[in-house]
Write a protein that binds this DNA or RNA. Structure first.
Lengths: 175, 175
DNA sequence: TGAGTATGAATGAATG
DNA sequence: CATTCATTCATACTCA
């Protein structure tokens, strides 16, 4: 709210970027910057330490204006959204199944996301080459009960039996 | 960026709305879907929880293809734009901008919309119709973030030296 | 048919 | 870490 304009944005957009908007006021990552960040993320880095953020930022500053906080936020957001996306784009994949009843969403079994993160031999080596193991594998161990507590409300979902369209009256009654 | 195509959209357009071919690439809500969403919004629901989103999405899936994220975005946008509009109109007094140009389809419908949303006490914020579990979140206060936030004045990379761009090979090797 | 607009989608920046 | 706000990008839609 107060910060707002930190940089004046030079936005040189490193190499061949195809981004249009080049306005400023907030960091607008270069394609190269994004690439690097993504690579790092995919290499397993999820929550970089202050030092790492500093280094990354420094390196990336070459491709264009960037601050440490940008890197910090980037990782925060990327991680959060990846997780959030998983939660949102799953349980509702039954497009046109005209199940009048007995739909039974049943437990969501879509965790099986094919994430390439399963490639440890990629660049991770460089990441832990020397003692700055501030980041390890935060996840993997603490991936337990947390979500999926929605069975409690198991509503029937049997509206409309022959339908053409459900009765408009019970519009908001399903919540 | 790479997300882009999430749904393929089959777009059957539930009721008889006069939509055309309706190509897809992005969710195109049915009139019924919009109606329900709008009703929910007007009922006070502004930022549905994940669970609610899920339920809404499921219900709405009857009228046509829809994903949770669509519902999520819908509320996000609707709320944001409402606020945005309001802000424009009220604080615009300082410049005395005449909005006479807005008279497009503003018969009575438009008016009604703006007026009704103005109800001060009607916002329920989350509309909890079911027992939301209580959180026993410890929440450590590790504000280790502030180190690089706000501290934007610290960076002063004099990267105008002479290089043009670092060797692309050492992209990830700097850590 | 193209400008202007409504709105879905994405994401940077915060805050708790 | 999750949740939310603000902006912006992208695209469907409307109308003259």
């Amino acid at each position: 709210m107060e910060d707002g304009m930190s940089g004046f944005c030079i936005k040189a957009r490193g190499g061949g970027n195809g981004s249009t908007g080049t306005k400023c006021g907030r960091w607008n990552p270069t394609t190269e910057q994004v690439k690097v960040l993504t690579d790092l993320f995919r290499s397993g880095l999820r929550t970089p330490s202050t030092d790492q953020i500093q280094k990354i930022s420094t390196q990336l500053s070459f491709y264009g204006k960037i601050e440490s906080k940008n890197v910090f936020y980037w990782f925060q957001n990327h991680k959060a959204r990846e997780r959030q996306k998983r939660r949102r784009v799953s349980i509702d994949d039954k497009d046109f199944i005209r199940q009048d009843q007995q739909e039974k969403v049943s437990s969501a079994k879509h965790f099986a996301e094919i994430h390439e993160v399963s490639e440890p031999e990629r660049v991770i080596e460089t990441l832990q080459l020397f003692p700055l193991n501030s980041y390890d594998e935060p996840e993997k161990l603490r991936r337990h009960a947390n979500e999926y507590l929605r069975d409690t409300t198991a509503y029937s979902y049997n509206f409309g039996t022959e339908m053409d369209h459900p009765p408009l009256d019970l519009r908001l009654s399903f919540l």
